[in-house]
Design a protein around this nucleic acid. Structure first.
Lengths: 144, 144
DNA sequence: GTCTAAATGAAAATAATTATCAATTACAAA
DNA sequence: TTTGTAATTGATAATTATTTTCATTTAGAC
């Protein structure tokens, strides 16, 4: 389940970040994104209703949200780095190459593979990235 | 098995790219990289012996090698995008967070997962990124 | 050797991100 | 409710990464 505006604001407060109007606006802007986004996209979207919010503030807010794990970075998509709203549990992404839609998935156990790799390579593994890309159903129907 | 200088040069020729001294030098520079690299790093390394080769040429050569699938892009590492020399078969990466070493691995079948995801989401999946990060054996022994 | 399209380097242009700093503001405490 | 203060902001400049332009050079086919 994608994080909601309320949940994100609560987390910000919990970590002693002030809830400024600008931050609220950035949060609204990202949670209403259907798919992935970039700092520039959020800025552009915001600019219509809040022409006084600067791109720098978008970068700063996004940085905080990343630190708190409330947004995820995407790698396999067209314009890397791109971002997407986080969820409460560990998950991976399925990304549409055409429209940018991001679908979360869970339930795949990489633990087994991780154990094998650690054993064979001697690595102490602490993280991973797993993303699939392709075309979502609606986009498959669009003729080139 | 990592691609060799010879293999890369052959591929360049095969695709009608001219084998200039600059390209040869860039190729030598990347195949002798123990770990991952960035355009700037390759340029710096080259600059000692070939002060006349420009950074632009490094970018251009790297671009060609990417197009031909002879180098791979890394995502999970510190400075994304970073690159590593390719291999002849489909594989994934295990990356050391400290020294940047890249170990290839193969043999994990994501096909099953891919099929399940495609079915559940309706996506037509055509690619994926899978990378693990951690500390390699030598780096684990270095005390902070 | 000659020819020609491809490749190069220098410089400028563009894009993305971060740092600086004075002015403003959220919000805790009085 | 007012006040004090540290956090936040926007404007601007600085930095970094990458791409474009274009005149000159060069690999390699003939």
């Amino acid at each position: 389940m994608k994080l909601t505006e309320k949940k994100i604001n609560t987390e910000l407060k919990r970590h002693n970040y002030k809830l400024t109007n600008q931050r609220r606006a950035v949060v609204v802007s990202i949670v209403t994104c259907q798919s992935q986004f970039t700092p520039a996209l959020i800025y552009e979207k915001l600019h219509r209703e809040h022409p006084d919010i600067g791109l720098v503030t978008v970068y700063r807010t996004l940085g905080i949200l990343m630190d708190l794990g409330l947004v995820c970075e995407l790698h396999a998509s067209g314009d890397c780095p791109a971002y997407t709203v986080g969820t409460s549990q560990h998950h991976h992404h399925l990304i549409c190459n055409r429209c940018g839609r991001v679908v979360d998935f869970t339930g795949h156990r990489l633990a087994e593979l991780e154990k094998r790799l650690a054993k064979e390579s001697g690595f102490r593994i602490d993280s991973h990235v797993l993303e699939f890309t392709g075309l979502c159903l609606p986009c498959q129907k669009i003729k080139c």
